[in-house]
Design a binder for these strands. Structure first.
Lengths: 220, 220
DNA sequence: CGGCATCCGGGAAGATACTG
DNA sequence: CAGTATCTTCCCGGATGCCG
């Protein structure tokens, strides 16, 4: 009955990390929970390509190893959500190292679909302290049903789910469009004209925001 | 004929990294090449558990994506070796992030088998600058047929294959024993008595060396 | 609808044997 | 020594269905 998982049986820390989160989709699931708990159906829609079957297995496995917990929200919502443990949140630097490295790949396709969480996490990863010199701003984001609020300083950019009321500037629309503006150099005006992105609040701040996240050079 | 690899089709950098090196054994293979080229049979014996079949596939895949190259050594050896590209070597920070994170796991078994390269890489990962204050030493290692020489300073600890002639101190024996001395607190004298490890050169330096690599605290 | 369990097909991984 | 060939096993992905 006890299904023994396949392990590397290697004392190397890296190998053990792969034992814990090397299965397909595991890191993607953790990524989607990195900015706050989500329910099963949210994970399904935010992770295109994963099957309900596999998502169930991953959530079970990640719960067993202590990377996340199921939590029952208080009434009236009563919904069950999956929430990272503190240790689970500490996976973020790994994702950042992976992301930093992989964006240098010539095979990387930045125009592929991207989730709201991915874009926001990429900001935390790529924030350039020098370019953000002197900044202290609240940045709001609205992607469909999700609202996020971030506190931007040169040193850090913590982001959490929450109302964007009180934000100095808010971006609303499609994560892909925001990624295009920040990383693809697509002019804000074009995205607004196309209805893919809406900006409200301090427009100069918005324009500056788009320049804060330089990508590392491609290899070659 | 063109075998299309299974991808996440996700613009997220982390997801693309998993496309490139998320397959089973891929990171382990890169790890074993991280301190210098190796031949097929060396990889097979240094990676217990991998089958020749899978090793061939991984080497092919990693070559296709530009992480390693096959190189023919000049006569008279004439042997073929696999060598990381510059981009391949840049995977090391990812392995370090994974290793640092996973050693905090309660499930991590530090007594499992460990390869020579893993132990040496762990030193680079865990080196504590404060504890190495003022050090500038050559550390030699001999594990079976492999010889490595490292240049230890508080800032860094580059290690490469090479003769340990000129080392201030040399450890020779079993990687597992060395790991036990550094991370398990096993007394050097006990390991020497058991014939698992031999130390030659500056003994005080050897004793100090063992204290330079503190492990992060376990979770809980 | 959310959260599974179940069944099935395809493909990757594992073990062993074999070849130049 | 450096792989290839073959066979089996297991995991992944998709579909369906159950049950609160």
């Amino acid at each position: 009955m006890t299904k023994e998982r396949r392990t590397y049986e290697d004392a190397c820390g890296m190998a053990h990390a792969l034992d814990l989160l090397g299965e397909r989709w595991a890191l993607i699931v953790l990524r989607e929970l990195m900015l706050g708990p989500k329910r099963f159906s949210e994970l399904r829609t935010d992770i295109p390509g994963i099957s309900a079957n596999v998502l169930t297995q991953r959530l079970e496995g990640l719960e067993e190893t202590g990377l996340l917990v199921r939590r029952k929200l208080p009434p009236p919502s009563n919904a069950q959500v999956y929430q990272l443990t503190e240790w689970g949140y500490e996976v973020e630097p790994i994702g950042q190292a992976l992301g930093r490295w992989a964006t240098r790949s010539p095979l990387h396709d930045p125009t592929a679909p991207i989730s709201a969480v991915s874009v926001l996490l990429s900001f935390r990863t790529m924030l350039n302290a020098a370019r953000a010199e002197g900044l202290d701003a609240r940045i709001g984001f609205r992607f469909g049903a999700y609202s996020y609020l971030g506190h931007l300083t040169p040193e850090d950019f913590p982001i959490a789910r929450g109302d964007d009321a009180g934000a100095d500037v808010t971006f609303a629309g499609d994560p892909r469009a925001l990624a295009g503006a920040v990383y693809g150099g697509v002019p804000l005006a074009a995205l607004e004209a196309a209805g893919a992105l809406a900006v409200s609040g301090d427009r100069a701040l918005a324009e500056r925001f788009l320049t804060l996240f330089p990508l590392p050079p491609k290899i070659g």
